[in-house]
């Protein structure tokens, strides 16, 4: 956990309850998940009751309350990608990482998520890793994509 970074983010918004979502997003970005202790600190410094922080942190899918791997892998499952073979692609990625959707591998390297239309229908099926789109991915190429982040 990058404590120094997290503290910086929180301190920069001290006493500003309205910055809650912004702060949580930044912490999620650098730390990949929101530990309970961190949420308590956010609650104290931003002066937002802890139950409100918890409510927001569990409401949005962007936030994770459990540890995530350092690489966030999304496979698009929108209609177009699905028609272009995303189902098979997702199965391949599941096998390669060894986890199901919503899970993280034991080495804390990859977290797998799916999404419904991640915005590049004409280029599907696609894998998005840490926000970077890998397009027209044949299942046989999935391994190469993942390995490039090893």
């Amino acid at each position: 956990m990058q404590t120094a970074n997290i503290d910086q983010i929180i301190d920069a918004h001290q006493g500003k309850p309205s910055a809650l979502i912004h702060v949580l997003m930044e912490i999620q970005h650098v730390n990949h998940w929101l530990p309970r202790e961190v949420l308590k600190k956010v609650s104290q410094k931003l002066e937002v009751p802890f139950n409100r922080v918890l409510q927001v942190a569990t409401f949005y899918k962007t936030f994770s309350m459990i540890p995530k791997g350092s690489h966030e892998v999304h496979v698009c499952m929108g209609t177009t990608c699905r028609m272009r073979g995303a189902g098979e692609l997702l199965d391949t990625v599941k096998d390669l990482i060894g986890v199901d959707v919503g899970e993280t591998d034991a080495d804390m390297k990859y977290s797998l998520e799916n999404g419904s239309c991640l915005g590049c229908c004409s280029l599907g099926p696609e894998i998005i890793v840490n926000g970077k789109h890998h397009t027209r991915v044949e299942p046989s190429k999935a391994d190469d994509v993942l390995k490039s982040y090893a």
Partner: peptide
């Protein structure tokens, strides 16, 4: 939250 101001219960998930 409002009457006791203890904030002991939270809504979670959506």
């Amino acid at each position: 939250n409002e009457v006791k101001q203890k904030n002991a219960i939270a809504f979670v998930d959506c």
